[in-house]
Amino acid sequence: MTAFTNYFSDVYRTFRSVAIGMSVTMRQMFAPVVTLQYPNVKKAMPERVRNRLYMNFDDCIGCELCAKACPVDCIDIEVMKAPPTENLGETSTGQKKRIYVTKFDIDIAKCCYCGLCVYPCPTECLKMTDVYEFSEFDRNNLIYNFGTMTPMEIEVAKGKVKQNEEEQAAKKAVAAAQAAAAKATAAAQAAATPAPVPPSPAVLAPQPPDKDAQTPPKAE
């Protein structure tokens, strides 16, 4: 008898479940649509979203902290120390620029969007934007060249740096000669009077302010 009643209750439950299912789909049919028509309508990004890196080259002081922080080494920087006489201007935060940045490339294809490069930047010139549509057909287009120095400017800068180095080298030679002479006289004096005069002030005194302290012993 149970088989008999089961048979009819199965028939009943079938129709009941079909009716429930149909009412669910009918209700869903007039429920609000959740589709976002993506290229036309875009979802608002969260406030602190991390997408494409943006770099304001005008504010870069060439400290390379970002390149060191990057876990995937996608930031490629080449720098040259500018001569002290050269005026490279200031950043928007008022910091003086002292270094030529000849190359500042970010390989955004390698970037893992961790944002670790953003925090160390002392002038806040690196930041992550909310731009996420930047696919390219050629992978090389994903290497962004933020550096604004033209090859000619780089050559000029290189010349200046070289000239400065030569001048510095010449100065060093002069200073070394002077230092040697001073040392010789000091030694002579020391030999005459055995009072223990520390030699360093005498050595450093004639040197220019940015002169390396290690130079005189080398020159000897």
């Binding site: 869903q28 049919m29 007039f30 429920a31 609000p32 649509v33 589709t35 028509q37």
Partner: peptide
């Protein structure tokens, strides 16, 4: 269209 709207989608647009 019916299939899409039953699944809260839009179908062809």
């Amino acid at each position: 269209k019916m299939a899409a709207h039953m699944q809260n989608r839009l179908a062809y647009m």
